[in-house]
Design a protein around this nucleic acid. Structure first.
Length: 437
RNA sequence: CGGGGUAUAGUAUAAUGGUAGUAUGCACGAUUCGGGUUCGUGUGAUCCCGGUUCGAAUCCGGGUACCCCGACCA
């Protein structure tokens, strides 16, 4: 096997397209056993697959594979947020105390990380960004003609959780997409709210998550109903009642009825399920705009506080929820759009046989074929046994596994392809692989 | 913060108060090549501080970290 050829290829392509990778250079370190301090399925499989590494309780490194999946989630979110007119920006994580005092939240938000600098100035690490975004708005002038608009970011949130747990499901530091919408009146805000709700539905569908849209209380912001996007799974720490017939759902804090009772909408029997809250949307009303002075000039020329909405998705939590609901005993089964690689090429054969040279050559052609078609590929160039390669492929969970071996080549120069979520294998000629995908 | 548990090589685990062992990983040499091949060699550990003892991974005290249940989660 012309190893030097691979190295050159690695550097050439990796610099330009990070999604094309030789496994020996991809910093993928799988492990046979789960760390003993990770009881949750998502953390175990992600750690074993080489996706994450725990630094301390509730704080995780996203290793290259993990970053790849997270970037895919971020890409989907960006596309759907842009589609409803969201404009991306990036707010600071370090917030001055004064800002949080304006809304009286410096003392009332319990999980705010607070710190003091060398000049005794006090700061918070952003647990949420209503104050910061509203500050930006109030410093600028807006006409009713500018309304509505929506800004979002994907940023690290810090929350001093009393108890972090369940791997990526409840961390102290995590990435969140938060979108804030600004409206001239409540009616417009409601219209946008429904748009956002639909966009959220698309996002979770593309992420391979089934969600129940549950009504919830408005929390400290509002008396109005908010909505939580809940992924049903035993691994969840929330409980919702859910009507499988009409779709009505409420979290149990809000719900009058319980599981087994009748749906207040259609009369069907309600289910009570455990779930993970992967996203939520709620109104802010004029709470922040009034408190901080975020106004626009209405038609009559008078200053009017903007009506605001807020829409959040925890990206790490989405990733954890996907693993909780998409795996088997061998590893993660990524939904197509989230997989770090579409194709995992697995050549089989010893390194110094004539046959294995043929295998390597065919695998390279397959690799090139994938590149040509813009397909993200992981190429297992390691000198490892078939069993080890298969085990790692299952653990990593790329969408397609493509095995090249003497056996497959004997069948008219074919490769064996198999989807990670399926046990069936199929022989396909290398030329047709690009077309097939 | 209340309650419970755990802490030994990179990882997972053994060890009556008396030589810290095994597997895996990693390195080297062979071997094998469709489900974590096999063999050999090497590498590498008792969370921290103190106490008891001739002697502590082991017993005691105090820390620290991690996990679980609860409270918290706008």
């Amino acid at each position: 096997m012309p190893r030097i050829y691979y190295r050159v290829e690695t550097y050439l392509y990796v610099w330009y397209c990070s999604y094309i990778m030789l496994q020996s250079h991809a910093f993928i370190h799988t492990r046979r056993e789960a760390p003993k301090d990770e009881p949750s399925v998502n953390a175990q499989l992600l750690a074993r697959g080489g996706y994450i590494d725990k630094l301390t309780s509730g704080v995780y490194t996203l290793l290259p594979l993990g970053l790849s999946v997270l970037s895919n989630i971020a890409r989907i979110i960006r596309e759907e947020m842009n589609a409803i007119g969201g404009v991306e920006l990036l707010l600071p994580a370090l917030h001055p105390k004064e800002l949080w005092e304006e809304t009286k939240r410096w003392d009332s938000v319990d999980d705010l990380y607070k710190l003091t600098d060398r000049q005794q100035r006090e700061f918070a690490l952003g647990a949420t960004h209503e104050e910061v975004i509203t500050d930006i708005i109030r410093k600028r002038s807006f006409s009713y003609k500018d309304m509505p608009f929506a800004l979002y970011q994907i940023q690290t949130k810090f929350r001093d959780e009393l108890r972090a747990k369940s791997g990526l499901l409840r961390g102290r530091e995590f990435l969140m997409k938060d979108l804030y919408s600004f409206h001239a009146d409540e009616e417009d805000r409601k219209k946008y709210y429904e748009k956002a709700k639909k966009a959220y539905g698309k996002i979770f569908k593309r992420c391979g998550l089934s969600v129940v849209v549950a009504e919830a209380g408005g929390g400290s912001f509002s008396k109005e109903i908010s909505h939580e996007f809940q992924t049903p799974t035993e691994a969840g720490e929330d409980t919702v009642i859910w009507c499988t017939k009409c779709g009505f759902a409420q979290n149990t804090e809000l719900a009058q009825a319980r599981g087994g009772e009748k749906c207040p909408v259609c009369g069907n029997v309600l289910a009570e399920i455990k779930s993970i809250e992967v996203g939520n949307i709620f109104t802010l009303g004029t709470k922040f705009s009034s408190a901080m002075g975020a106004y626009f000039t209405d038609r009559s020329g008078s200053d009017t506080p903007m009506v605001m909405g807020c829409y959040g998705i925890g990206l790490g939590r989405v990733m954890g929820a996907v693993v909780e609901t998409n795996h088997d005993d061998r590893g993660i089964i990524w939904p197509r759009e989230l997989a770090p690689f579409a194709v995992h090429i697995v050549p089989l054969g010893g390194k110094e046989k004539k046959s294995s040279a043929r295998v390597a050559k065919a695998a390279q052609v397959l690799y090139a074929e994938c590149l040509k078609n813009g397909i993200g590929v992981l190429y297992d160039d390691r000198d490892a046994s078939p069993g080890q390669k298969f085990a790692d492929a299952d653990l990593i969970g790329a969408t397609w596994r493509m095995v090249v071996s003497e056996k497959t080549l004997a069948q008219k120069g074919c490769v064996e392809i198999k989807r990670r979520d399926n046990t069936k294998t199929k022989l396909v000629s290398i030329k047709n692989v690009g077309k097939l995908l």
